[in-house]
Design a protein around this nucleic acid. Sequence first.
DNA 1: CTGGATCCCTCACGATACTG
DNA 2: CAGTATCGTGAGGGATCCAG
Lengths: 225, 225
Amino acid sequence: MTRLRSYGQYCGVAHALELVGERWALLIVRDLILGPKRFTDLRLGLPRIPTNVLTTRLKELEESGVVRRRALPRPAASVVYELTDYGSQLENIVLQLGAWGAQSMGEPKPEDILTADGAVLALRTAVHPERLNATERIGYQLRIGEVQVYAVLSEAALHADAGTLPDPDLVITMADFGTFKPLLTRQLDPAEAVVSGTVQLTGDFALLPRFIDIFCLTDPRPAPV
Amino acid sequence: MTRLRSYGQYCGVAHALELVGERWALLIVRDLILGPKRFTDLRLGLPRIPTNVLTTRLKELEESGVVRRRALPRPAASVVYELTDYGSQLENIVLQLGAWGAQSMGEPKPEDILTADGAVLALRTAVHPERLNATERIGYQLRIGEVQVYAVLSEAALHADAGTLPDPDLVITMADFGTFKPLLTRQLDPAEAVVSGTVQLTGDFALLPRFIDIFCLTDPRPAPV
DNA sequence: CTGGATCCCTCACGATACTG
DNA sequence: CAGTATCGTGAGGGATCCAG
């Protein structure tokens, strides 16, 4: 049933692509990086995926040892999919691939969506950990189109997730999520964006440059671990 | 003609996969990492690829700005494909993907081949640059099945390529290329392999442990640049 | 409501043959 | 050498249906 199409090469890259190179597979891994998810959650994050393809991919990834299927204990009569240890080793590769792809990403097409997971991933990709300092404690709330995500910098670490923060130091709002990437790549000047109303701020305005500094996709980046 | 199937997400990973996520695409990039290649060279390195698919992929990769098609000057009435600067940024990602895939790679199947490029890539992936030292100068010649590749360590850098070396310090020969990966992952004990005849040596035997030490896929690795 | 299974259609892939 | 042409197959896309 699960026929793995071989590339006919004894090569790590070829074998890796046999495991996670099928269409949709790496996007499933991407969504699972942020934590275990149910079938339906994955569907929502991958709006165009046919359910049969999702089923097939999950089976293949499970068989490959990348994903584990786990039944939740009572009372949640449900099932979650999560990355195995082996699958988790893809995390940095997927993030780097995202950073590479983001460079050549233009305006969003009309049918494109931005998920909260996508925004969180973008923050985790873009962050420059070496620029954080231990004494600093900042809470950013982002509203990007419909999605709400937050980023907390404390103890030289980033905590980013979907949802809202109780007392953010700065709320950054943009109606169009097409604004987000130019901001992170410095194609869009923050000050200008605020003046033109493309980006709206609530809170300590002075924390915006710091945000751009910490989350910049184009600055040279020390190698991730 | 070139219809790019969209994933419908405004996300760096999704966009990256639209550029290089099609079947065979990353293997083409992989082969081009080692330098410009002609159409026929690519065919030889990708033994199972249909020529029309290779043509299509090259066009798509060119359109995506990953690959550049360049006509060679006279007298070589020919064409080569090479990575653009943007495409070259995939190098580390592809190597890391190869290291990830190699971990779960079993015995080669009967139809699998090993190309010289594959072996060179494996060496460049497996090398621990931080273990090289500036004073050391070693030339290894490897014969893995039919392929011949060499690795020269000098001035704390690795030079690996297909072909032969004039005066190697150690020649490492293995008839079956299935032996190569277990050696690099320390699943196969070098001393045992030599005693059993799976691996044959000519030259300074004492340089074999050093080889395994420098090229070890499983040891924790400082982040690549 | 979650977690799929089934059906049908289309197009990308794969194999082979052929050409400038 | 560097591709095009042709054609069959099967994986992906999309809608619908079903069991717990």
